[in-house]
Write a protein that binds this DNA or RNA. Structure first.
Lengths: 184, 184
DNA sequence: CATGTGAGTGACTATACACTCACCATCTGT
DNA sequence: ACAGATGGTGAGTGTATAGTCACTCACATG
């Protein structure tokens, strides 16, 4: 039961998380109703509460899934780097991240999670994801601390650019902060 | 009437905005009820709706006020810089910003605004504030575009650090991204 | 005194939402 | 054939919340 085959309930749970990524990314933690997620997943709202004990835990699970995907993308990027130098590794990881967040959902989810971080469980999940991301960037790239810090900072800048819509039809002044940033 | 004296309604409006900064910063746009803001300001909820036509516009007004304070702080920092070189100017402005957001309210308000940016009016206010901040940093420092971009990116990193609570009793790994960052 | 005006409120409405519960349906092992 | 586990739902409940409205009170002015 714990080896290869998932029960249908676990399959459902994954489908609900997939819907939750989309819906939470669109409207945030408080702005998204469980009913909307259930409808998107094609099941009743009551069944969502059978699969997850609370909206809060559904959000946390969704956020953890988001970070799993981010970590996998960084890993992929690192593996595909043409060159083992720290700068090249970080550049490759950045490119893989930019590609991953192409549909904005995973990015928006992180933005909304930051806004909901005062909910203890959500804040803890955010810290855990940031920790894993940072440490992976450090260990795979072998870059100095300053370069890793820069990597994270420019990731946040990328979030800001997308949130403000500066990547779509950017005004003239926007090139000041969007120049060189790889965004979707 | 338009010169020096404010009517009591305008005074009230300012008091409500001050309360709104605190309350919205604490619980976000959707997480804060107008009743809570009214109570904090010591007036009835009905009167808040006489002073502001909607919760949305109250939030936008509050956010604009936040950016006014940010711009004033940057201006102050620039004016106090011991040295006119671009690097020194940006450093001084960064220090003034770090000091301004010492109580976290103005920082958290920006984070929550990013999460609520899909509301058109809020997104527009955010873009406007970012534009003004970026252009001010550029024009006062005379720094190159890359340095201004870096200035904004590290500002966002600062937000992330505060949101995740990494500035209070930081775990060991946190120094990777908090090193050198001036936060409250 | 009469009258008008701006400040301020209590009580209400309509709705939306997280969460619950009693219940049905379908499969599975014996 | 049947007992029980597992998948799934319709119909609620209680509460919170944005926004409204009819109203009161203080005060200024003619």
């Amino acid at each position: 039961m714990n080896t290869t085959k998932l029960s249908t309930a676990d399959v459902r749970r994954e489908a609900v998380v997939a819907s939750a990524v989309t819906m939470f990314a669109g409207s945030g933690y408080l702005g998204t109703s469980v009913a909307a997620i259930a409808e998107h997943a094609g099941i009743s709202q009551a069944y969502v509460f059978k699969l997850f004990p609370s909206k809060e835990l559904l959000f946390v699970t969704t956020l953890e899934h988001c970070f799993d995907l981010v970590l996998a993308a960084l890993e992929r990027g690192a593996a595909a780097s043409p060159d083992q130098s720290p700068d090249a590794m970080l550049y490759a990881m950045g490119g893989a991240y930019a590609e991953l967040i192409g549909d904005r959902s995973l990015l928006m989810l992180q933005v909304h999670a930051q806004s909901a971080a005062s909910v203890p469980e959500i804040g803890a999940a955010l810290r855990k994801g940031l920790r894993a991301t940072t440490l992976l960037a450090k260990s795979r790239s072998n870059a100095c601390d300053e370069a890793v810090q820069r990597f994270i900072a420019y990731g946040q800048l990328c979030h800001l650019i997308v949130v403000t819509g500066l990547d779509h039809n950017p005004p003239d002044w926007a090139s000041l902060i969007t120049a060189g940033i790889r965004h979707p």
